[in-house]
Design a protein around this nucleic acid. Structure first.
Lengths: 238, 238
DNA sequence: ACCTGTGAACAGCTTCACAGCG
DNA sequence: CGCTGTGAAGCTGTTCACAGGT
């Protein structure tokens, strides 16, 4: 095993696919499969094999020519790259249906994340126990001294901007925002947004194109879907 | 008003941003603002102004030089482009926490989408009324003859593939998958995936980079965040 | 024979900079 | 003058095709 020489920067697009590979590898390890080729991994992740090789080459050379990759070693390598060898403390703000759904989702714990706080501002909800954690307020969270690395916002849209600013004041620099709208925050704060409406609208666009293509009998316009499969993220939550 | 000459194809990246513009425009119209420049729209959507102009140019020339865009006309144009002038029937499969959260989210109705069916396979849940709709099974949905254009999968991961295949058999060709893992479906079916774990892992990657940059006092590695703001999708759900 | 790792070609997207028009 | 619309430049990401190992 050679020294893991850290390359300069892993491309953003590659970072977005590492979780896919990691999930596939985890499933394989559960089945006791210890070796995998780029072709097989590509099938499981829904990308092309050349893409897998290029992506993994950015982490260093951990494959064996003529054989493939060692599942366990590769899994460990990707985990380290993604920073999952430590546990990041996560706070969920907004205990509506969605917040509860995320709190109940077990996929975090032991996989690099731990929910350390559930937050709401409704006096009816604050103090109640959800999934073993007592719901608190943002101000109480601030004075408690609990460290939070990642904030998940599941509040109604109007509250999101204020909540985000308060999270930043608490030292949070990574935010996952489920509320619609663009958050304006200081440089250095990383925001990712997930929006149901946006996703549906993109699907509607393609759906409409398909219908138009059929009604005009124009087969050329029918190649609406991208490549082998069209995905950006993955799905979670039972 | 000139004839709306349909350009060949709107780039996929542009399609992904049209919902952002539409949301911003909707907010502006609520405030009674009837005109907007690319600069302002860019700020609201969290992109650059040149990007806005390039994107909108793909829909045709609806701006006025020296002035800007007419909010209402632009909103209507984007809505039409995204296929929101009709109502797409949506079925949500999986009535767990997340499925209920999505069912309760009002942002669909009247905005291009209508939830026509809630589906689960648990006999305890089937037949109960959620948000005014009686929960049904996939097979019952099939025999009912209810048309479904878009299927939203909020089941546990192991059920997702089978559910997706059944949806396709019902004629669904657009699927929004919240379950983790890659769905293998026939060509022509459009799948979009949303996964909490993936999003968190991407945030963890950047968070780790930041910490490494600080600990090694290397300011060059600190420019972790992309451009003005780092977003792919938007957020919804109270 | 097989599969990885990678330079090179290619495709798509973003940003620039300015011409064109109100 | 102000702002749109757009060719051109530059950049990022993907795919190809094959050299390099085992």
């Amino acid at each position: 095993m050679t020294a893991p020489v850290r390359r300069a920067g892993v491309p953003e697009a590659t970072v977005g696919r590492l979780p896919l590979y990691l999930r596939a590898l985890t499933a394989l390890l559960d089945q006791g499969i210890t070796s995998i080729s780029s072709e097989e991994l590509a099938t499981l992740a829904g990308v092309r094999s050349a893409q897998v090789r290029k992506d993994l080459s950015h982490l260093g050379s951990y494959g064996v020519r003529g054989v493939g990759y060692d599942s366990e070693q590769l899994s460990a390598q990707i985990s380290q790259e993604l920073g999952l060898t430590q546990e990041w403390p996560v706070a969920i703000v907004g205990m509506g249906n969605l917040g509860r759904a995320l709190a109940a989702y077990g996929g975090f714990t032991g996989r690099g994340f731990r929910i350390v706080a559930l937050v709401d501002d409704d006096p009816e909800v604050v103090g109640t126990v959800v999934e073993g954690l007592t719901v608190t307020t943002l101000t109480a969270l601030g004075t408690s001294g609990t460290a939070v690395a990642i904030g998940v916002i599941t509040t109604p849209a109007p509250a999101a901007q204020t909540v985000a600013e308060q999270l930043v004041l608490l030292g949070v620099r990574s935010i996952l925002n489920f509320a619609p709208g663009h958050l304006v925050l200081p440089d250095g704060v990383d925001v990712r947004g997930v929006d149901l409406a946006t996703e549906l609208q993109i699907l509607a666009f393609h759906e409409q194109r398909r219908l138009l293509a059929i009604s005009t009998h124009d087969p050329l316009v029918a190649d609406v879907d991208a490549g082998p499969d069209c995905d950006l993220g993955r799905g979670a939550l039972g």
